[in-house]
Design a protein around this nucleic acid. Structure first.
Lengths: 212, 212
DNA sequence: TAGATTGTTAATCGATTAACAATC
DNA sequence: TAGATTGTTAATCGATTAACAATC
């Protein structure tokens, strides 16, 4: 299971949820492909991998496929996330994810600024950073989001990894190093914006969209 | 020039800037590789592509390499960016980029909410959305950032593309479709978080970091 | 049946990795 | 010189694309 495929499955599911809201019952691979920005063959291969089969006449059943992707992508039980750094970006992410996914929710926020802790921000409790290990263990948090300034990112990554977190989504503009068992994904807005600016100046480019 | 390579060059430059601040004059490929989270051979191949050569004894000259990457990545003249959607995320991005890059700056923000326009937010002027085409043309804006809710993203993408923007960084959780000459990069926080959550549950995974 | 779509294999493509002579 | 690093080519790897018989 490649990281790209997991990303596409996540996109398919969102599209399927939208179709269900419109009472659409069946969908063909080429329809999903057009909406997701990939090819029909890629959709079919991905769905094959999650073990869901369609039929030539009706394509894929929207409800059944949604559930099948959910069994694949979703945690068996509710999965808890922590966010470290309650600045502008941290608060934006808290607002964005508030009550969005039933099985994946941010249950704790941490900051080193005393003015930002022991509060409830967009429905999420905030704690002093030195309570991180304790809260991560108590709340069974497996995923951490880093939204602190670059100079503090590595320190925070070490705290999270030592507390038992197994996945990190890093927004700090710096590469962090953790032990091999921790999955790290960097979302570097500066790098992305520089890349878009670079290709915006090129007359020709691949033209394909990048799903991060 | 692949999109991944452009991303790595952006990372190298940031690292080199840090080294310069510490008065480091020379750097070897394996040092850059360790900091950037890639391989030494990859660093050498990337630097070869930008046309900068090192020497076996001294490695690469930090200052010269920084300038060489800049000539490659940076626009010949100041490049202007617009952001559409002044919600939590939009304001966070404005705060993040305020006075950060000398040659790449967000010069205009747009929103459909009358309460959010005709103001200065983190140093950036905000306009009503219906002035987008006019302002984009006047300010020679080539890049747009979309931070509106998903249902409005396609409409905003059309507005930007029609106004002459050539690159779009899309934070809305939906795929947008634009003509081929416009480069689109999606930063989908939901997809990324679901992916991290997925791999956090796996016992084994690639372990390699993903630079987006 | 006819026709469009599916599951699945083979071919293609591009990026990464390994290897090594040349170099300072 | 000796030794580590460089530029560069070949081999590997994985993902995407193309193709097509099977199927409803």
């Amino acid at each position: 299971m490649s990281d790209r495929m997991v990303g596409r499955l996540s996109v398919y599911r969102r599209l399927l949820t939208g179709l269900r809201a419109e009472s659409v019952q069946n969908v063909y691979s080429h329809q999903l492909a057009r909406m997701a920005g990939c090819t029909a063959a890629q959709v079919r291969r991905d769905l094959m991998a999650v073990g869901y089969t369609g039929t030539p006449t009706r394509g894929y059943d929207v409800l059944g496929l949604t559930e099948s992707i959910g069994r694949y992508l979703d945690p068996p039980e509710h999965q808890h996330v922590a966010i470290v750094g309650v600045g502008n970006l941290g608060r934006a992410i808290l607002a964005f994810f508030a009550n969005r996914r039933p099985k994946l929710s941010i249950v704790a926020a941490f900051d080193s600024d005393p003015a930002k802790v022991n509060r409830v921000i967009h429905g999420c409790r905030s704690y002093p950073i030195d309570q991180l290990a304790e809260v991560v263990a108590r709340e069974k948090i497996l995923v951490g989001i880093i939204t602190v300034p670059a100079p503090e990112a590595q320190k925070v990554a070490d705290l999270l990894a030592n507390a038992g977190v197994r996945g990190i989504l890093n927004f700090a503009p710096v590469a962090i190093h953790v032990r091999d068992r921790v999955y790290v994904e960097d979302m570097d807005i500066t790098v992305s914006l520089e890349r878009v600016a670079f290709f915006a100046r090129q007359d020709k480019h691949s033209g394909k969209e990048m799903v991060k």
